[in-house]
Write a protein that binds this DNA or RNA. Structure first.
Lengths: 237, 237
DNA sequence: AAATCGTAACTGGTTAACCAATTATAACAA
DNA sequence: TTGTTATAATTGGTTAACCAGTTACGATTT
């Protein structure tokens, strides 16, 4: 039994082990940026795991910009230096899954910025897209229906108008987690949704009038209610 | 020739096409959250692409939290509703690769927050880790060597001390892009690196003394020089 | 000795067959 | 009719063989 616990690793732990082994290999062989890693086949043999596991680990490191695979040629160490590489791999290995609180905290941070940037950079098309999502939200709320999705789509429209692709990507990444947790904890009741209509409209107007300060402030107001609501009724996880 | 241009799609475009076809299918079949998607085999036959392409597309949508694959069971629509799903897929399809300007803009936003949060939440271990990276940076600069990597590792240590896993992940994601661009444009010259020592130390002290306002301000000062330098000498991409 | 060419080994990527677990089905029993 | 069980089909995941492009290297020619 004990033996089984020790030897049975889920695929996540296998991947972490492979990643740390790749790091050790790079250090041991003194591989410089641009150098070629041993082939996937050799690594799978050396680490005694399937080639699929190796590819998975390489893809993760490629996602974080530490490796670069080139077809029919090899996998190469990225141009960021061994010190940064070691530090980053260490951080990646110790990364934990995001909790709801960190999601909300990050969302507010990003949204205050997107509101400001959208006010500065929005085009007429952006305004049109925002108006559409705002109308969909309003109709849903007035019909007494749940409108969490339409709410988030309005915010994503602002993110798109901010013309910052990095923040836009990050907003997309956190949105599903926000939606599921909101619905789970019933964060948005009808009372809150009614207020939301006016708040959304205020944000929209500020962006339309290209007033970054006001846009940020209105977004802040919007979240202050939400924030407060979250931490009063659902302070845990 | 023209025909070849029209029919030859790189794998990225193939994936985008599959993703939009999956979206159409969900809409056409009125699949609700939690419903099961057709099997990978059926999809690959229906869309006339390999099963591998299908898996790749599903994995991307799974990354953004829109689908969920369960072994030996099926692929399921996430619990976020069809409206949000449609909107998000649209956004994902139109996402472009991040440019350097958006990376820097996002980095500053995140770092002002991590400095503040780290001042509030840092442990003794966090301080120790920060001090180590700070020392490595100082030594490198005093030896007249390039210290971009050590610079970034100090900032990542702050991110870790902020105890916000989402922001920490985002910092890790943008760091390689920052490093390569910095080295490409030689953003950090020796003069700037010398100033950096004092600035880093100021940030460290503020976090150590648990002064969030000061930590944020010192981080802002740190970036104002960098920012200015960026936009003066390298305003273009 | 140097340059060129061709061959053979090696690369990451792709594919089709296979696997174990789940699920649907239908036969059977109560 | 209802509940149970055995079985067959289906699922996502895994694997090993295969592919096309790249690279290394040595024979050959000049």
């Amino acid at each position: 039994m004990k033996l089984e616990i020790l030897t049975t690793n889920d695929s996540e732990n296998v991947q972490k082990k492979i990643i740390s082994q790749i790091r050790d290999l790079i250090n041991y062989k003194n591989l410089e940026p641009g150098d070629k890693l041993p082939s996937e086949r050799m690594l799978s043999e050396k680490f005694e795991v399937s080639r699929g596991n190796i590819r998975e680990a390489i893809q993760k490191l490629e996602f974080y910009g530490l490796l670069k695979s080139i077809p029919q040629s090899g996998t190469f160490v990225a141009n960021i230096g061994v010190i940064a590489l070691n530090g980053m791999i260490e951080d990646i290995l110790s990364l934990e899954d995001p909790d709801f609180k960190s999601l909300v905290e990050t969302r507010i941070l990003l949204e205050l910025k997107t509101a400001r940037l959208a006010a500065l950079r929005r085009t007429e098309d952006d305004l049109k897209a925002m108006a559409e999502t705002l109308e969909a939200y309003t109709n849903k709320v007035k019909a007494g229906e749940d409108a969490v999705q339409e709410d988030l789509l309005f915010h994503l429209a602002i993110a798109k108008a901010s013309k910052n692709t990095t923040i836009n990507t990050f907003m997309l990444m956190i949105t599903p987690g926000i939606i599921t947790n909101f619905e789970k904890y019933h964060v948005c009741d009808k009372n809150l949704a009614q207020k939301g209509i006016q708040e959304h409209y205020d944000i929209y107007e500020a962006i339309k009038n290209q007033d970054p300060q006001l846009a940020k402030q209105k977004m802040k107001d919007h979240f202050s209610v939400l924030y407060q609501y979250c931490y009063n009724s659902n302070s845990e996880k």
